[in-house]
Nucleic acid binder design. Sequence first.
RNA 1: CGGAGCGUGGCCUAGUUGGCUAAGGCGCAUCGUUUGGGACGAUGAGAUCCCGGGUUCGAGUCCCGGCGCUCCGACCA
Length: 412
Amino acid sequence: MKLSKLFTKTIKEAPKDETSKNAQLLIRAGFVDKVMAGVYTLLPLGYRVYKKIEQIIREEINAIGGQEIYMPTLQPKERWLLTKRWENMDDLFRFTSHYSKIEYALGPTHEEIVSPLVKKYASSYKDLPVYVYHIQNKFRDEKRAKSGILRGREFMMKDLYSFHVNDKDLDDYYEKAKQAYVRIFERCGIGSSTYITFASGGSFSKYSHEFQTITKAGEDLIYICDKCKIAINKEVLNDVENKCPECGNKELKEEKAVEVGNIFKLGNKYSEPFDYYYTDEKGEKKPVIMGCYGIGLQRLMGTVVETLSDDKGMIWSESIAPFKVHLLSLKQNEQAEKLYKNLEQAEIEVLYDDREEVSAGEKFADADLIGCPIRLVVSEKTLKEDSIEVKRRDSDEVKIIKLKKLITELTL
RNA sequence: CGGAGCGUGGCCUAGUUGGCUAAGGCGCAUCGUUUGGGACGAUGAGAUCCCGGGUUCGAGUCCCGGCGCUCCGACCA
């Protein structure tokens, strides 16, 4: 991608109606654009990051047997009446068609769609378990959208639903999902600051598990056990008598954190309202046991920015960076162009700053702000040596290497 | 939903004891000079001063009502 062709551009000063770090950096760098409180457009650079995160999640959920589908946002009121959420769920968007007067919900989650769906196909113990998920647009009428893209009213979410013949089968899959989540956050670059956290479990199980990433931008308080590398959400701290439920450790460290993922045992809470039972080996009718597993994509992206950034801008890990390489030409477009083509041929993702009327300083500042992992500079100075300057965004070390060796160096 | 703050060209700000043609910076356009850390000069375009009502000879500025945005709190299957 050539920077001269990118329709967005960076801005020096963040709009004053954004104070969170994630929104300021993402807006300044041209990754997102705000439409209204809690609603953002993903721009080319931001959408590339989004898609990479999406793909990581897809791969990990597929690896535990998830089958990807796509369910609608527009949902009939009747389904929500059955689960009593039409009247009880505060952040459910409800609206009435102007001409038919029919009422609808905009889906904040999809138990009401997925339970009747799976019921149609899986009525025997032979058909179970079933694992289905989608990555889809959610609407939540948040009383207070906040913290940039961390808590929006419209956002993409990966929601996985599992259907089981009994608790044991759910428990086994729940553990698999937990490990898949660990891998997802690891691959997104926030593994070391993300903790499996005990949270309230609703009526079916004692606890659910949240994945909480430590950051000052977080709105939750968690208590970390350094021995077990797990944490306890403030809401259940009293239930566990202020100690680690795994090892009994009472030396817990309080931190602010943001919930990037959540896994939850639902039991028959959403199968029962839809009269979803299966027939077991003996021909007896048994309740279908469910689990659900969610990750908010924009929130995850925003959390990465909060966690991995400095005063100059964002610092993306290679796994989700918009581009692996940011190539700057300092008045050497002829040579840089060749290099750009070579890199693309080698299937290295490269953002090429080919802008001619832009000063060196501005190009450096933009590269730091956008935060691609590797910065390459082509200048008269480097070309004299048949070389190129290589600098990683997360390091101050500047290396000069021969042009011939560049591709090898980058594909290591 | 309670509390606080803010609302002036695309972005950041000044202007608020009411008073002339709403000022500056960034960005944008044209020209020239620059080019390794957000260059400089000149010229130019671009504004329902959030909206509605009111007070006044006169309102960006004062009053009333609304809307929007941010932050704190409450809430968050």
